[in-house]
Design a binder for these strands. Structure first.
Length: 417
RNA sequence: GUGGGUGUAGCUCAGGGGUUAGAGCACCGGAUUGUGGUUCCGGGGGCCGUGGGUUCAAUUCCCAUCACCCACC
């Protein structure tokens, strides 16, 4: 499906307020936006074959540089001709830069640790209270040191190394290397960190253009906006990364990352601060968000793609997505827990109107509950396929709503006034 | 038959002469957003095998008994 002639590009097809109905052209086919990006961290949607992922309506996948770099190593992926062939997915792929793992492995959120004093400009180590798990990550101006969760070995990531690795992995869209701050970082640290992320963005951009492509198709590079839940920092970051060029060349897309606040409302505010300052002609990706209300909220503010582990991870733990309960009343959380005892004798499908393999295939809630309780992989597979189909259906509805200028109505129909 | 060991939550086991006996898992429910095949938070649940004895007080110490396990004849 690789189309060498297709250059990366983004086009707005319709608008509804700030919302965009667009199309991203990639060497591995188009992405109709707004779109949900399913997460395949280690080069696989856990428990589901690529064909089933495709059948569930997924257009594009998200893989992790950190994980694939550690195992099996970028060279092995490159030897296959890149991630697409390696994992048997011929559609578009986006890779994370590895920056987030710095956050989640070493400088992650540990709630209840207490107040964090700003140590900036002291370089080196994240604030003590903000260190997660075992504090195995050190950040400095050049990059980060981290310890492998696989075998304990020590590794160095820099913008240049991240880009080189992502060149080898060969995703259609790759991310600049960034530092992701947590809610425990105060404004001073967050601001200084964002500025460093900007310097890393510039180095990522330079490395991306300096380094010869490993695979015979054009990859796209997204810059990452940081700034935590602080308005001034978000605006500054959006402006800086959006306008950034090296030798006249800028980013192909914008990603919004980092700490988006403690609540959904805060996140929506952060988006409202950010998207107006992003270049209109570039696609915007929102990192790590995928709950149903946020899909509408983000689309409404001009976000084009989102990735989130929740639909697939929750599926494996029994949380299947649904809009209405059996009495036709909306689920506030858009989710039912199939492991609940109430489904033990429930012979109905998850959702009568759903066309996914689990629902249309005649599999009952009781059967799925049994499989999930017994840890059978088929249960995880069916639940995952259902959730992917659900996400695809919501996104299709959002796209259609934007096309006809009725996103607000669609949003209210889903979320209430 | 003899000797030894073990009986505590659904399971595997801690514990200990003195208010309402614990853990892990399981079960029930809830959270969990750039996935370390998750993680976290709550909840229900016990004649501490049975009978007797010692003691102010026994699930705890003693005796008997039953069940199971191991070894030996």
């Amino acid at each position: 499906m690789t189309d060498v002639s297709t250059s990366f590009g983004y086009r707005v097809l319709a608008r509804d307020g700030a919302a965009r109905r667009g199309r991203i052209a990639t060497p591995h086919g188009p992405i109709e936006t707004p779109a949900f990006v399913a997460v395949a961290t280690q080069g696989a949607i856990k428990s589901v074959l690529p064909r089933a992922v495709r059948n569930a309506g997924s257009q594009v996948l998200f893989a992790n540089t950190y994980h694939l770099y550690l195992r099996p190593g970028a060279e092995i992926v490159a030897a296959h001709g890149g991630l697409h062939r390696f994992m048997g997915w011929d559609g578009p792929i986006l890779t994370d830069s590895g920056g987030f793992q710095v956050f989640s492995l070493g400088a992650g959120i540990e709630h209840g640790v207490g107040k964090v004093a700003s140590i900036f400009p002291g370089e080196g180590v994240a604030p003590a209270g903000a260190r997660g798990r075992s504090g195995l990550v050190q950040v400095d101006e050049e990059g980060v040191w981290f310890v492998s969760h696989v075998d304990g070995s020590r590794h160095r990531f820099t913008p240049e190394r991240s880009i080189r690795t992502q060149r080898r992995l060969g995703a259609d869209m790759v991310l600049a290397f960034d530092e992701c701050t947590s809610p425990l970082h105060d404004q001073a640290y967050t601001a200084a960190s964002a500025e460093r992320t900007h310097r890393w963005a510039e180095r990522s951009l330079r490395a991306f253009h300096d380094e010869a492509p490993v695979h015979p198709y054009r990859q796209a590079l997204y810059g990452v906006v940081q700034g935590g839940a602080f308005e001034a920092e978000r605006i500054a970051s959006a402006r800086t990364v959006g306008a950034m060029t090296v030798d006249g060349r800028g980013f192909d897309g914008m990603a919004i990352g980092g700490n988006l606040g403690d609540t959904r409302e805060t996140m929506h505010r952060v988006l409202a601060w950010t998207t107006p300052y992003l270049p209109d002609d570039l696609p915007r990706h929102l990192l790590g968000i995928g709950d149903v209300p946020s899909l509408f909220e983000a689309a409404e503010r001009g976000v084009d793609t989102f990735d989130c582990v929740a639909p697939t991870r929750n599926a494996r733990n029994g949380g299947v997505l649904a809009r209405f309960d059996d009495d036709g009343r909306p689920f506030p959380t858009f989710r039912r827990n199939l492991k609940n005892a109430r489904y033990a004798n429930d012979l109905r499908p998850i959702d009568r109107s759903c066309t996914c393999e689990a629902c249309a295939g005649g599999f009952s809630r009781a059967y799925l509950r049994h499989l999930l309780k017994a840890n059978e992989q088929v249960g995880q597979q069916l639940a995952t396929v259902h959730n992917l189909r659900f996400m695809a259906a919501v996104m299709r509805e959002i796209r259609t709503a934007i096309e006809i200028g009725r996103l607000q109505e669609a949003k209210e129909a889903w979320l209430g006034p």
